[in-house]
């Protein structure tokens, strides 16, 4: 992976986290290709080959709908995430498609001030590089635990 590709990917990762953690969710779907796969699953499902995701979207439109549902339809207590991630590990590099893997930890803070460790896991990404843009073609969020406390409103 050349330096330019690595920069594009690192920038994409940073934007992803920033748009979620800073409540800029309207711009979150723009980090995906029009046809894409975004799924929040867990280790057990992943190991068994089960395709179900607590959130499962195969188009940018579905990601936008997720955001508008959060804004307009769903009821949940005010909360914010703080993502902590590590360096991206290259798995495969195939012309325009880079497959990478990285770890994450998400701490959720509620409006009441309650703080708890909400999720840990890994991102399995297929990233499409086109010129000077990098976009997620696929992001599978594999949580270590199958348990989700109360609800999963904001995407991981």
């Amino acid at each position: 992976m050349n330096e330019q590709t690595r920069n594009l990917i690192e920038n994409l990762m940073a934007e992803y986290v920033s748009r979620i953690d800073n409540d800029d969710l309207e711009r979150w779907p723009d980090l995906f290709t029009d046809k894409c796969l975004y799924s929040v699953t867990n280790r057990e499902n992943h190991a068994q080959g089960y395709a179900h995701g607590a959130i499962w979207a195969n188009s940018k439109g579905m990601l936008k709908d997720r955001v508008s549902a959060l804004r307009e339809a769903n009821i949940y207590e005010e909360q914010v995430y703080r993502h902590i991630g590590d360096a991206v590990r290259l798995i495969t590099l195939d012309n325009d498609i880079v497959t990478v893997q990285s770890n994450f930890m998400v701490v959720r803070t509620m409006h009441t001030g309650d703080i708890h460790l909400f999720a840990t896991g890994m991102y399995l990404d297929r990233i499409r590089i086109q010129g000077d843009t990098a976009l997620f073609e696929e992001r599978i969020v594999v949580c270590d635990s199958q348990k989700i406390d109360t609800l999963l409103a904001i995407p991981l």
Binding site: T41, N42, E44, N45, Q48, Y50, A51, H52, G53, A54, Q146, K147, I148, D149, T150, L151
Partner: peptide, 10 residues
């Protein structure tokens, strides 16, 4: 089976 998860209800 398509998958499992567990929701913690407080």
């Amino acid at each position: 089976i398509l998958g499992h998860n567990t929701q913690i209800l407080n």
